[in-house]
Amino acid sequence: MIQLVDVRKTFDDGKVVLKGISTVFESGKTNLIIGQSGSGKTVLMKCIVGLFEPTAGQILYHDRDFVSMGKHERMLLRREMGMIFQSAALFDSLSVLENVMFPLDMFSADSYKERRRRAQFCLDRVNLADAGEKFPGEISGGMQKRVAIARAIALNPKYLFCDEPNSGLDPKTSLVIDGLIHSITREFGTTTIINTHDMNSVMGIGEHIIYIYEGYKEWEGTKDEVMGSDNEKLNSFIFASDLFRKVKAANS
């Protein structure tokens, strides 16, 4: 479980991006942060994982305050995290298998054979059993995202973060990625936070959704509650496309 308590972020140039966000992300659920571009959702994600320091507020990982932690404690806590970046962020100089093995090589005390077996298991889990010897530049964007998922789960993380995992992918591959993240969350009981503006993800795997609008938490609920919400700002964001307006009309 990750709890945010009045998280605020103001940059050095005086720009206020987060204006006091509080919420709870529960374990074993896919938690989605949605919002328009520039609403502050990426900054919020970066604050949660510690790439940005919040100006005020608390970020509690199972009651351990990440903001007030020392460097060493943070390093240790980070070993419980896995993250899938928008660009996949695979190491170019390493093969797919070596990428997945990297966190194991760095932090696991297991033998080489066991580490390799674990990495292969993770690749199998994302249906990339045969891609181990390839390099990131030789595989498609969707495959890179799946490798990133395999690397993120290699150390059995308690917390899984996904920054726009479907960006740049076709709808079919996006569904595969969403399905993988959702099933891994269920399977391992991770606290998963996904930063997205893909409405298919919202409707497909949004067990807990928070909508960020201009740095505030404007709305919070589930994918089922999205349909019936009368929040104007949320509706103008979710039902911006014809397709979703028709879906809503059909539902109502």
Partner: peptide, 14 residues
């Protein structure tokens, strides 16, 4: 710029 350094940091690597 391709976030590989961020990925290392998130893993807990200096």
């Amino acid at each position: 710029v391709t976030q590989q350094i961020d990925a290392l940091e998130i893993m807990g690597v200096n």
